[in-house]
Design a protein around this nucleic acid. Sequence first.
RNA 1: ACAGGCAGUCGAGGCAAUCGCGGUUGAUUCGUCAGUCGAGGAAAGUCCGGACUCCACAGAGCGGCGUGCCGGUUAAUUGCCGGUGAGAGUAAUCUUGAAGACAGUGUCAUAGAAACGGAAACCGCUUUUUCAGUGACAAGUGGAUAGGGAAAAGGGAAUAGUGAUUAAAAACUAGCUCCUGCCCCCUUGCCACUGACCACUAAAAAAGCAAGGGUGGAAAGGCGCGGUAAGAGCGCACCAGCUGGUUGGUAACAGCCAGGCUUGACAAACCUCACGCGGAGCAAGCUCAGAUAGGAAAGGGUUGAUGUUGCUCGCGGACCUUUCGGGUAGAGCGCUAGAUUUGGACGGUAACGUUCAAGCCAGAUAAAUGAUUGCCACAUACAGAAUCCGGCUUACCGACCGCCUGUCAAC
Length: 111
Amino acid sequence: MFELSRNEILRDFKIVHAQGKSFANRDLVVYILRDEKFAGKVGFAAGKKLGNAVTRNRVRRLLREAYRLNKNKISSDCAIILVGRKSLIDAKVDTAIKAFLEICRRAKILL
RNA sequence: ACAGGCAGUCGAGGCAAUCGCGGUUGAUUCGUCAGUCGAGGAAAGUCCGGACUCCACAGAGCGGCGUGCCGGUUAAUUGCCGGUGAGAGUAAUCUUGAAGACAGUGUCAUAGAAACGGAAACCGCUUUUUCAGUGACAAGUGGAUAGGGAAAAGGGAAUAGUGAUUAAAAACUAGCUCCUGCCCCCUUGCCACUGACCACUAAAAAAGCAAGGGUGGAAAGGCGCGGUAAGAGCGCACCAGCUGGUUGGUAACAGCCAGGCUUGACAAACCUCACGCGGAGCAAGCUCAGAUAGGAAAGGGUUGAUGUUGCUCGCGGACCUUUCGGGUAGAGCGCUAGAUUUGGACGGUAACGUUCAAGCCAGAUAAAUGAUUGCCACAUACAGAAUCCGGCUUACCGACCGCCUGUCAAC
């Protein structure tokens, strides 16, 4: 029930990024697009500003974990992109989860 | 013990539980379940070299690029190993971009007289000439003085004669002697003036010098003795360099002998010489599927489109460019069993090679290693595979092991 399989991974980043609504706080940015075509898909990103490949990998894994543990609290009719920010580099999973849920509440996609 | 040098090893700290990810194997009631493997020494920078793929068969010349002591090693290299020269260090050891500067062209700022022409004279050293000064001195001229010689002249005494006769005297004459002594001559010292030559000093001119000073990164082999007017490889000894011979070494080179005496640096300036290099790169490239779909229009094309390297040749030989309107951007192969990993034996100083045994050790494609909790020694740097290997370079917390050198102490 907490799995994250291959076909849940988003491929069409450009469409979601361009057409989706964005929500942000101190720790992350979330793009949300309600579309049946991409329903239930998710993508994770970390820009080059965050640092080298190791730190970017770490941020992506944090986002992945935050989504994985909470995906059943979210409506599955939309595509989501999570983008990490600098404050997440040294953060623990708790802060990422808090930030993610806070944004979901604002976007009204919580079940 | 301290100081130093060389070479190497480890490194998401480990364990447990729960949730989760990629590959793969097996089972399956096709929902899943179980097993197993899963980032690095640099995965990095992309600086070299290859493998592999496509481009005639990978070709020729010019150009271009690279390399540059010698030998070896390798698939190959700007790598590595061994050696030589030079430099640094007491030493172990380290550094080295190390062909050619009498084939040519060029550069050497500032300073300095002069920066490669066998050049250049600023101070300086030396010779000659001219002029001036100083000193010393031969000599000359003049002056005063002293001594000597000679001696005009004067004077005195005595003598002789005349007088000169009886006897005498005055007077006269004579020479000798004595005294004074002009002019003249000689000598010594003194004073004044002149002063050849010599020495020194100053100036000017002409010539010689490359020793010394000074400038500079560098001043035309170094240093000493001789030599010289002063100097100079001008001569000699030693050292450095060059050329030739010879011995050793595969060679770089080293040793010895002889020679004439000597050639600045820069080639990471152009250049010369030798050797090497075809180009593009896994988004290479191949296959399948799919789309009204092997579209349409214009232009150029076998008198050569286009490709092959920048140019020329040679080779191949039918498409190419632009615009319009669309479509696909999915899957598989390439892709990980290899110049492979570990261990041993043998050969080699070594790099490395040969061989035997055992093993399989990431293969993703929005891209897999994470999260939480607890315990332990409590502390983690640089950092994340994308076709693969061999090197180089750079980054780095902390630790460990071995060998070697020097100093001190003890024996």
